[in-house]
């Protein structure tokens, strides 16, 4: 899949203040960070650290109350309207009335792609996520892990430059999650998009990422950035290596005020 521009996400002193009638909650305070093109980064932290808020700001689903965000040199809104994003949410959000193949087809209908072209693309995506045999099924006929794979395929359908993932595997059991971690890396190596992955699992963030942005709660702020030096391709055995445990320890130490 081709990359035309160089997408990089740049956050400059971004803050997000939620106001209700009686209270103010500072969800994100002064976050400045930089994500390189083709990089796999994680936003890691406990609940209340603003990691999902940050992802939603990047996705242009909400606008920060302060600070600036640039995506490939333009605004997040422009990037969204240029269909540079693919999003995978915590729940698969598949449409009940559409079969697996039709769910993946959905974004392609938006851009008015020709039917024959769409079919080829959908078949390629089904192969990519290993669900060729399930394309005629309805979402409720699939397991949670399979549903999330459909959601990933759908997010990749428009060949987005940036894949935003909001705790996509947190509802799954540990075994399925580790399996999908590996599968996600294999998919990523084929599509080469920039990935921003939100998680509260330290080991998941280490296993997947080039860099981990560690966020601390109340107010949500960036406490440290950890480079993950593990070689690629990553294997399940690496989870048992001394380096892996050292990284876990490093990240644990970098949390503030949890």
């Amino acid at each position: 899949m081709s990359l035309v521009n160089t997408p990089e996400i740049k956050l400059e002193r971004v803050s997000m203040l939620y106001q209700t009638d009686s209270t103010e909650v500072l969800a994100v305070q002064d976050v400045t960070l930089d994500i390189k093109q083709g990089e796999f980064v994680s936003l890691l932290g406990p609940s209340g650290c603003g990691k999902t808020t940050l992802l939603r700001i990047m996705a242009d689903l909400i606008q920060p109350t302060n600070g600036e965000i640039k995506v490939a040199g333009e605004s997040a809104r422009a990037a969204r309207l240029a269909q540079k994003y693919g999003i995978v949410f915590q729940s698969p959000v598949l449409y009940d009335w559409r079969k697996v193949k039709q769910n993946i087809n959905l974004p392609l209908e938006m851009i008015g792609m020709k039917k024959s072209e769409r079919e080829d693309r959908v078949n390629a995506l089904l192969e990519l996520v290993g669900l060729e045999d399930f394309k005629e099924k309805y979402p409720w006929q699939l397991s949670g892990g399979m549903q999330q794979r459909v959601a990933i395929a759908r997010a990749l359908a428009m060949e987005p430059e940036i894949l935003l993932m909001d705790e996509p595997f947190s509802a799954l059991d540990e075994f399925t999650r580790e399996h999908l971690n590996e599968e996600l890396l294999s998919i990523w190596s084929k599509v080469g998009s920039t990935v921003v992955f939100v998680t509260h699992s330290i080991s998941e963030s280490i296993f997947l990422s080039d860099r981990v942005f560690v966020l601390s709660p109340h107010p949500g702020r960036l406490s440290s950035v950890v480079d993950i030096t593990l070689p690629r391709p990553r294997t399940q055995e690496m989870r048992n290596s001394p380096e892996f445990f050292q990284l876990i320890a490093d990240i644990r130490d970098s949390f503030e005020g949890v």
Binding site: A59, L61, R80, P107
Partner: peptide
Amino acid sequence: DPTAVELMYSFA
């Protein structure tokens, strides 16, 4: 589901 609407936004 509000998330389903957000999904549509993300497709512009």
